[in-house]
């Protein structure tokens, strides 16, 4: 005997009586063929990560049981044949289970339904890299600099020692500021003044 679990997805809009008969049908395939049900869970309607047969939602049902290989293949065959089953997944949990021992410790409740699927936007920035791998650190020179005018690579950081050609952008900025301030008082004069200063 092996321990298995099966999750299967039913169409979301099945009437309740049909739902219960289907559930009954699948559990019976296990119990009839000398398998043992351990737990059952109904996870209810949940949103799917992708559409299945044009359904956005699916009704999740969970089974945990002890059985042998042929029973599982029979169950999977029935799941495949049924039109209202959207998908299913069977996982082997343990090999060579001692049936009586396992049935004694049956106290486990059926699994509680999970939280909704995670949002695709990751919370941690570490993982928000898109799909290209790690490209290493960016060189410092094009990072967050105030790019004066013209070629930003040669644009100086504000510091005392600069060659005259390089200090020009600063002056321009200063003159701009001046031109902004002046118009409040005398709008006509200000624009004319600034070019003179530079020359």
């Amino acid at each position: 005997m092996r321990e298995y679990e099966t999750v299967y997805l039913l169409k979301p809009d099945l009437p309740s009586d049909q739902l219960s008969t289907l559930k009954e049908k699948f559990t019976q395939t296990i119990t009839k063929g000398e398998g043992h049900m351990l737990s059952q869970g109904d996870w209810g309607k949940r949103k799917l990560a992708y559409d299945l047969k044009k359904n956005r939602y699916g009704h999740y049902i969970y089974l945990q049981y002890l059985s042998t290989g042929p029973i599982v293949s029979n169950l999977e065959r029935l799941l495949k044949l049924d039109d209202s089953v959207l998908k299913f997944l069977t996982v082997k949990l343990a090999d060579k289970v001692d049936v009586e021992e396992r049935l004694k410790n049956l106290g486990e409740a059926p699994l509680a339904p999970e939280e909704p699927a995670p949002s695709r936007a990751q919370e941690s920035p570490q993982y928000r890299r898109g799909d290209r791998g790690d490209r290493g650190d960016r060189p410092y020179r094009d990072r967050d600099r105030d790019r004066g005018e013209g070629d930003h690579r040669s644009s100086p950081r504000p510091s005392a020692e600069r060659s005259p050609s390089e200090s020009k952008p600063k002056e321009k900025e200063a003159s701009k500021e001046a031109s902004k301030e002046v118009p409040k008082e005398a709008p006509t004069e200000a624009p004319k003044e600034t070019p003179k200063e530079e020359a």
């Binding site: 999750v7 997944l89 999970e114 699927a117 993982y127 928000r128 799909d131 790690d134």
Partner: peptide, 24 residues
Amino acid sequence: NYKTPRTLGYFITERGKIIPRRIT
């Protein structure tokens, strides 16, 4: 566990790819 999509979500990209070990 495959039944905990919340935790698995930390190890996939926005496009759904599995994030390599060298990053995680």
